[in-house]
């Protein structure tokens, strides 16, 4: 047996791969579900907090800044563990799936709030003044003038952060979520062969490459003619 054969036998074992492919695929579905939930709720919550913050109510802004800094400082894994093992003591027992969703959602909320806020504040004061001087309300100015410009600036950092955090769905393995990595590592220990892990890696690529490409498309779409 040549070295190459030994390598393929270990890492690209088609028999093992075929056997555990259904498990990995079900893991892909769980990952997609989890990632979509995290992205939609995390970004929506982050944008809501940034909009609330733009109202300029001091005590509220202190609270927002505190929450955001908290979730930006804590490692996501710690948040998952705290929610999964901590909430039962107050009578709530979220599943591993829900714990992971909530944790990553909070973390994405915190990071995206900062990114949205930076985008909103980077729009020149003159834009606000011009819009308000024509009679547009605060809300109309935000919606039609400020946010379109802010979004354009926030798309690159936002997509990076979103991709980083959705990959964090793999952390769900520690609380028994059967997503890609969870399925791959249990397949690995059942088969004494790391090929399912390669399959899992391939699944992540297939999942996230289109997201990266889509992000690039959105960036070009939001760029305006100069």
């Amino acid at each position: 047996m040549s070295r190459w054969d030994r390598f393929t036998e270990t890492f690209l074992n088609t028999k093992v791969m075929a056997r555990y492919l259904p498990d990995i695929l079900s893991g892909v579905l769980v990952t997609i579900e989890l990632a979509l939930l995290v992205v939609v709720t995390g970004l929506a919550a982050g944008l809501s907090l940034a909009l609330l913050r733009s109202l300029g109510i001091r005590p509220l802004n202190w609270l927002i800044i505190f929450i955001v800094d908290l979730f930006r400082s804590l490692p996501p894994l710690v948040v998952i563990v705290l929610i999964y093992f901590g909430l039962p003591s107050v009578g709530l027992s979220p599943s591993g799936f829900v714990s992971t969703w909530l944790s990553l959602g909070f973390v994405l909320m915190a990071f995206s709030e900062e990114i949205f806020w930076a985008g909103i504040t980077s729009v020149a004061r003159g834009q606000w003044e011009a819009a308000r001087s024509t009679g547009l309300s605060f809300g109309q100015t935000l919606r039609h003038v400020v946010l379109p410009q802010a979004f354009r600036l926030t798309i690159p950092p936002l997509t990076n952060r979103t991709i980083a955090i959705t990959k964090g769905t793999a952390l769900g393995t520690v609380v028994a979520v059967t997503e890609i990595l969870g399925q791959a590592s249990s397949a690995m220990s059942n088969s004494y062969n790391p090929s399912p892990l390669m399959l899992g890696a391939a699944a992540y690529l297939v999942l996230f490459l289109p997201v990266v490409v889509a992000a690039r498309w959105v960036e070009t779409r939001f760029a305006w003619k100069r």
Binding site: A124, G126, Q127, E129, A130, A131, V145, Q149, W224
Partner: peptide, 10 residues
Amino acid sequence: VFQSFNLYPH
């Protein structure tokens, strides 16, 4: 009308 025009660039 402002010194720096303040047109909406988008």
